[in-house]
Structure formats: structure tokens, C-alpha cells
Write a protein that binds this DNA or RNA. Structure first.
Length: 498
RNA sequence: GGUGCCGUGCCCAAGUGGCCCAAGGGGACGGUCUGCAAAACCGUUAUUCGCCGGUUCGAAUCCGGCCGGCACCUCCA
């Protein structure tokens, strides 16, 4: 525990305010996860990273965190709630697509993309949520909640499903500004459904005995509406009122607006005391979309040679509360920065091994920088400043390099460990998980041959045969191997494909 | 039409009333090192914050107008 204040923007009150926990020092946090009908893209991950950074920051000030992040493995409708429920389900559509051919059924498809999601998650060094519930594992509770909403007069059954009556919940629209009145003014074409009392009413349960995923309920065969899963799972794991709820900006409406309505209708208590939303990621100044060809997944970028931690860095380089422009150049920039942390770590290890006597020249400087970095994170997750302070620390360490005493090295090591716990950009917290899930197989390198060539080049240099030396350097360069001459000999590194 | 968000150097991006003649990263340029390069390290790189007015002792920061961009309005992180 500490007396530090963690401030975050709250979408509901539209201002930055301290995160208050109901139980002192214990954050109960729910973040919306993906629908697993395809690979999650880097825009999805930007929003998951916000959740990860919230958890890391809370832990850095000594809070206990119970973090629930769901997996939506029920397909929801791709179209508006059309009257006959014939709207195609996005998981069904994925199954019928070319990529879906290899799956026997939607369940396998969901499982495959869930695994892929978790692998990418580990690659980007996101910490593991305490609970990762699946919508399909909570259908029973969703049916019970649906019935309760009917019993309490907030929902009604029609020939096509069960709908939540927006009129019955007067504060509907408080989060998004889409009040019933404003929604009526909307001129957007909406598919009319005569079964609904009001156009703004939304589905809690859809009746459909042809749906690929269906369950039996008091209303016959069908499947749950999209919003009810989060209401139910948040309550099951975190209680009636939670401290904080997060998601992407597109979740504000309708998803979170509807969650609030359902949850508060069920419990009569506030659903979440704080709401945080991550703004969209743009790619090269444009909206990310498949048609524009700028739709990036984590594995695509790794295949292109991007360092997973650099992807992470690039995605958190800007504030979560503003749109971020993800560019190829930004990714390269991030790689250079991640490299600097690696260098600082290498220098630190050498310094400890050297056992050089002397004062700890860095301890207080680094502690100060860490505190500034933490302070920035506590101030509405100001990642730009937090990263700047972390980089300054890494630079400070690298600058000392050969002059690092053993005690300075130990301070450096502590600094890097704390920065990594806070920002996750120095190294993978759990390298084994990241490695075992590595999506791209490192192509085999003939290390013996490379090292033999380096020896040959060193000899050529000694005999002043620079033509041969440069020839070796250039041929290795062409293979993607970069040579770096230093006082202690020549090192080699793989060059990134970016 | 409704509801929100944004416009800072060549690029990305902090700062939202005085500590800012504006962090940090990349790039570019100069230097140290080096056979040369790469890497590393050091230094330089916005009297200025979309435009025009206003408020104020003081504005990138507040207010008004204009121009430009983005998101959501029941598939979407």
C-alpha cells in the first residue's frame, strides 16, 4: 500500500479523476476482450495494452488487483437485429470463409483463435489476467439474468427473442450521450423490427434454432445477446459493483451503455465506478481496414521481422486517450529504443560480473527517474513521459558502461527490473511462455560458419587485407547478418527485415 | 442530423494558464572512436504550438469564430 494517487480519465464523468477502490488497496477490474472469430489486430491489442498498463501501474503502488478479461466465443450478429434473426453470425461467416475451411465447426474455430490470441498476448508481454472467462462457459448465468430482467420488468419476450426495454431504464445514454431522445434524432438507417417496443431496445436473448451455437432456454433454442455476457461475468467474478471497467472507444456505445443498463437493472447498484476507453489506432494516418491493406496482426509484424517488444513499445508510445498513428517508421523507432534497454541490461550484467569496487554513482539518479516514470503513469497513464524517463535511465546506464562499479550495476539492475515491471519493454516477464508460443520459427543459422568467417575477417584485418575483410562483411550483410566491431572483438546480430 | 475527440519541429509524440524562448524518440547534420564502415557515446536541430479574434499582468494551454481531420450512432478494441 502507498499513499500515491492513481488518476485516470473517466468516460462517465468526462474528467480525469482518482481511481477509487471499494476495498482499500484492492482494484477490481474488468476489461473487454475480443470476439475470437479471427486474429486480433494491433488495434485490439492497443486497448488490451491499456488494461495491462493499468494493472502494472496499480501493482507498482502496492495494490492488489483482480483482473478479469473475457473472451467472447459466441458469434454475434454481423447485421442489425433483423426481425427474422437471419442475420449472419460473424463466427458462422468466418467458418464459411476461405480461412475457415480447415475447421470442422465453430467451436474449433473459436478454440483456434483463442489460442492465437493468447499467443499474441504473450508475445506483446501483457501480463496474465487473474480470470479469463469465456462467454460460452457462462450461458446458464446469462439465461438466469435474462429471466430476472423479465421478472423485474426491464425486459420482455417477443417471437424473436428477449429485449431490454430502454424506456424502463431512465439513465440510459449517460455514458455515451446517446440518450433515448438523441437516438430518436439519429437519422441513420436502422432496420426496423416490429417486435421491439422501441427501436432503441436491444437483444438480451435471440431465438434461433438454426444458429450454429445454440442453447436451450425458457424461450426455446437460441443464443445470448452480446452485452449480457459481460454484465454476468463481471458480476460473477468481481461482485455487483466493480472499481474499473475498460475497453476500446467503440465499446462506449452500444456495448458498455447496454451493460450498465442490464447490470444496474439486475442489482440496483452502480455497475462500475470508473470507465476508461482506449482511442482507435490508425495506421499510416488511415483507419485500419482489410480493404486498405493496412490491417496488421501481431504475427504479421513478427513475420516481417519486428521485435515483439518493439511492437509493444510502438503501441504504447502515445497516450491511450488520443488516437495513435502507427507507422512503419514508428515501429523502427521503437526497435531502436528497445535495443537501448537491451544494451543497458547487457552493460549491467557485465558490470556485476566485473565486481569493480567503488561507489554507487547511479542509485539515487535512477531511483529518481523511476519515480518520475511511475508518476507519469499514475497521471492518466502518460506513457510518453514514462517511456522518456525510462529511456533516460537506460542512457545513463549505458553511458557509464565500462566504468560501472558493482554497486552501480546492482542499482542499474534494480532500475531495469522495476521499469520492466511497470512498462514491460525491457524483456519478456516470462520468456518461456513467449518462446513456447513463438509464432515464427527462427530460421536455422549456421553459427559455426558465421563465426569462422568472423575469425577469417579478423585475420584479414590484422594482415591489412581490407579488401577481403570488407568482402566478408558485405556478404554477411547480404544474408542479414550485421557485424559490429568493438574493443573486445567483433559481435554479430541479425538484422531486422523492416 | 445526434454524440464525442483531435490539429505541437522533417516524422512519431508529451505538455492543457507562469517551472515552456515547448519533454522524449526517430531522422538529418557535426564530433569522439575506427583501416573504412556499422554500432555506441557527445553535441546541434520549434522565440514557436491549424488560422483569426478575445480574456488575462501572463496562453500551445481559457473563450468565440473559421479551416482541416477522426470516431461512434446497435458487427467492431
Amino acid at each position: 500500500m502507498s499513499d500515491k494517487v492513481f488518476r485516470l480519465y473517466d468516460t462517465l464523468t468526462r474528467r480525469v479523476k482518482p481511481v477509487d477502490t471499494i476495498e482499500p488497496g484492492h482494484l477490481r477490474f474488468y476489461s473487454c476482450g475480443p470476439t475470437v472469430y479471427s486474429y486480433a489486430h494491433i488495434g485490439n491489442f492497443r486497448s488490451f495494452l491499456t488494461a495491462d498498463l493499468i494493472v502494472r501501474t496499480a501493482k507498482a503502488i502496492g495494490w492488489r488487483v483482480t483482473w478479469v478479461s473475457n473472451i467472447t466465443d459466441v458469434g454475434h450478429l454481423t447485421q442489425d437485429d433483423v426481425a427474422d434473426a437471419s442475420g449472419e453470425d460473424k463466427m458462422e461467416r468466418a467458418l464459411k470463409s476461405k480461412e475457415g475451411e480447415r475447421f470442422n465447426n465453430v467451436w474449433e474455430l473459436a478454440e483456434y483463435y483463442t489460442d492465437a490470441y493468447r499467443a499474441d498476448w504473450a508475445q506483446l508481454n501483457l501480463s496474465e489476467p487473474d480470470i479469463r472467462p469465456k462467454a460460452t462457459q457462462h450461458v446458464r448465468e446469462q439465461i438466469i439474468a435474462t429471466q430476472e430482467l423479465i421478472d423485474r420488468g426491464y425486459a420482455y419476450e417477443t417471437p424473436t427473442g428477449v429485449y431490454f426495454s430502454v424506456e424502463s431504464f431512465p439513465s440510459y445514454g449517460r455514458l455515451s450521450g446517446n440518450t433515448q431522445e438523441n437516438l430518436k434524432k439519429a437519422v441513420r438507417d436502422v432496420v426496423l423490427d416490429d417486435n421491439k417496443r422501441e427501436q432503441a431496445d436491444f437483444a438480451v436473448w435471440k431465438k434461433d434454432d438454426r444458429h450454429l451455437m445454440q442453447w436451450f432456454s425458457p424461450y426455446g433454442w437460441g443464443f445470448p445477446g452480446w452485452h449480457i455476457e459481460c454484465s454476468v461475468m463481471a458480476r460473477a467474478y468481481l461482485g455487483d459493483t466493480i472499481d474499473l471497467h475498460s475497453g476500446g472507444e467503440d465499446n462506449i456505445f452500444p456495448h458498455h451503455e447496454c451493460e450498465i443498463a442490464q447490470s444496474e437493472a439486475l442489482t440496483g447498484k452502480p455497475f462500475s465506478n470508473h470507465w476508461t476507453h482506449t482511442r482507435f489506432l490508425q495506421v499510416n494516418g488511415e483507419k485500419m481496414s482489410k480493404s486498405l491493406g493496412n490491417f496488421y496482426t501481431v504475427r504479421m509484424l513478427i513475420e516481417k521481422g519486428a521485435d515483439p517488444l518493439a511492437i509493444r513499445y510502438a503501441l504504447i508510445a502515445g497516450s491511450y486517450s488520443s488516437p495513435l498513428n502507427f507507422t512503419d517508421q514508428g515501429l523502427k523507432d521503437a526497435m531502436a529504443n528497445v535495443e537501448r534497454f537491451r544494451r543497458a541490461e547487457a552493460v549491467t550484467e557485465e558490470g556485476i560480473a566485473s565486481a569493480r569496487p567503488g561507489d554507487d554513482a547511479l542509485g539515487s539518479i535512477l531511483e529518481d527517474l523511476y519515480q518520475q516514470s511511475l508518476g507519469a503513469m499514475l497521471n492518466d497513464l502518460n506513457t510518453s513521459v514514462a517511456l522518456a524517463k525510462a529511456l533516460e535511465g537506460a542512457r545513463t546506464i549505458v553511458r557509464e558502461a565500462d566504468a560501472l562499479t558493482e554497486s552501480s550495476s546492482k542499482s542499474s539492475k534494480e532500475f531495469l527490473a522495476k521499469i520492466n515491471a511497470l512498462l514491460g519493454i525491457v524483456r519478456h516477464d516470462n520468456p518461456n511462455i513467449a518462446k513456447s508460443l513463438l509464432v515464427v520459427e527462427e530460421e536455422e543459422l549456421d553459427v559455426t560458419r558465421i563465426e569462422a568467417l568472423i575469425v577469417e575477417r579478423t585475420e584479414a584485418k590484422l594482415s591489412k587485407n581490407y579488401t577481403r575483410a570488407d568482402e566478408i562483411r558485405e556478404s554477411l550483410e547480404a544474408e542479414g547478418i550485421e557485424l559490429r566491431d568493438g574493443p573486445d572483438g567483433t559481435q554479430w546480430v541479425r538484422k531486422s527485415g523492416l
